[in-house]
């Protein structure tokens, strides 16, 4: 099942005209639409873990979806703690699952 909603009974077909580009997630390329939140592109591919916590190394994913809770933070283009639910996709972005606070060696 594709997680994207191409045609919607109320809001119709997806017609944003956004360009589909490639981003790299943990070394693998996935398609994404320019301007959509990075998180949306990940969910579309059923990728739901964004980071692992510092102490107990537990997985975290989408929780608030509006940039408040920081559970969806990942390493984007080398920068740690980027909230993927409010960060728009740009062509060629490199996105990595974050471990802990994402410091030296991503730990």
């Amino acid at each position: 099942m594709c997680m994207r909603i191409e045609d919607h009974i109320i809001i119709g077909k997806e017609d944003s005209g956004a360009e589909t580009v490639e981003i790299t997630v943990d070394g693998k390329p996935i398609p994404a639409k320019v301007g959509e939140p990075i998180l949306a592109a990940l969910l579309a591919k059923n990728i739901i873990i964004n980071r692992y916590t510092v102490k107990n190394k537990e997985p975290r994913g989408l929780f608030c979806g509006i940039g408040q809770c920081t559970d969806c933070a990942m390493i984007v283009n080398g920068m740690a703690n980027v909230r993927t639910c409010i960060t728009p996709v740009e062509k060629g972005m490199v996105v990595n699952t974050q471990f802990g606070i994402g410091g030296e060696g991503n730990g």
Partner: peptide, 22 residues
């Protein structure tokens, strides 16, 4: 705290704004 547990508003944002199912 497991991935897959989220606010109803978060799910609504995903389906109606970002057009992707959570």
């Amino acid at each position: 705290t497991k991935p897959g547990v989220m606010g109803a508003g978060a799910a609504q944002t995903m389906i109606n704004v970002n057009r992707v199912r959570p």
